[in-house]
């Protein structure tokens, strides 16, 4: 019984790392632009499909399509920002909330139109099987994906702290007006952070495509969960999103284990509601 519990905990940790990577891109966009990107998980879906088609058509393993996804989603994010999102930045609050909903519906149904709503899977990725540690059995792709997620999250963290561009992004996140007065090109920072956010979620998509079903509506669940992760972690806080991602992963698997698996997402949402009730600014927000 306790062995099962340990393996549930480990599974929660693994899926939690995935949530973290998805959510830090979202929290970056949210923090810098004060926009909730409802299309975030649809970029995840595009990343998964990119990896799927590279595998199916050109026999490129998902592991090697990570850089392709990163670059492609970076460009897509940049274009979406330039032509759609940047237009609402000065507009009314409601337009800022709704615009990415439109992007989300558009992308998800573009995928339905192009590739049908079928569920697909990458049949034989390079990484497969399990590692056996006696008590716990680790699925190889899940473990690699989670380690990769942690590395990419750490990479973003270092980028923001160590480079000049990263510091500019953080400055805009803290105070847009002051940053503008200091000579930071905030428009460029916006575009860059949006593109970095989508690029990271594209990477997450490539990782996820190694072991998860690929279908146009895959964004639905992941999107809702990543909002909870971001809000739980706190407005625009990268560290907060990282910790909250792992927490949500563990809550989800333990909730499914102790109660009913059918209710595992309901438990996650309830945890979110209770958290914002007690701490409206999230765990690490200010």
């Amino acid at each position: 019984m306790s062995e099962q519990l340990v393996s549930q905990l480990v599974n929660g940790l693994l899926i939690g790392c995935m949530y973290s990577l998805i959510a830090i891109g979202l929290t970056l966009i949210w923090g810098v632009m004060n926009i909730v990107n409802f299309a975030h998980a649809d970029f995840l879906m595009i990343g998964m499909f990119t990896s799927f088609w590279l595998y199916t058509l050109y026999a490129v393993d998902p592991l090697y399509s990570i850089p392709v996804c990163a670059v492609l989603l970076f460009l897509l994010g940049w274009v979406i920002y330039k032509f759609i999102v940047s237009k609402v930045m000065t507009g009314p609050g409601l337009a800022q909330v709704v615009v990415t909903f439109g992007v989300s519906i558009f992308l998800a149904n573009l995928a339905v139109w192009l590739w049908t709503p079928d569920f697909r899977m990458i049949q034989r990725p390079l990484l497969h099987g399990t590692w056996d540690f006696g008590a716990v059995q680790l699925s190889v792709p899940k473990t690699v994906a989670s380690i990769g997620s942690v590395l990419f999250s750490a990479g973003l963290f270092l980028f923001l702290r160590m480079t000049k561009t990263g510091k500019a992004i953080l400055a805009v996140e803290m105070n847009r007006t002051s940053a503008l007065l200091m000579g930071i090109n905030t428009e460029k920072v916006n575009a860059l952070s949006f593109a970095i956010g989508t690029s990271l979620v594209g990477v997450a998509g490539a990782f996820l495509s190694m072991y998860y079903y690929i279908y146009p509506q895959v964004g639905g669940t992941f999107g809702l969960l990543s909002f909870c992760v971001v809000a739980l972690g706190g407005f625009g806080s990268i560290e907060g999103a990282f910790i909250a991602g792992i927490l949500i992963g563990i809550v989800q698997t333990l909730g499914g284990y102790f109660f009913d698996p059918a209710y595992k997402y309901a438990i996650v949402f309830a945890v979110y509601l209770v958290t914002v009730w007690i701490r409206p600014q999230g765990l690490l927000g200010w």
Partner: peptide
Amino acid sequence: GALIMLISA
């Protein structure tokens, strides 16, 4: 979806 994007933008 495209309509929503364009109207809000």
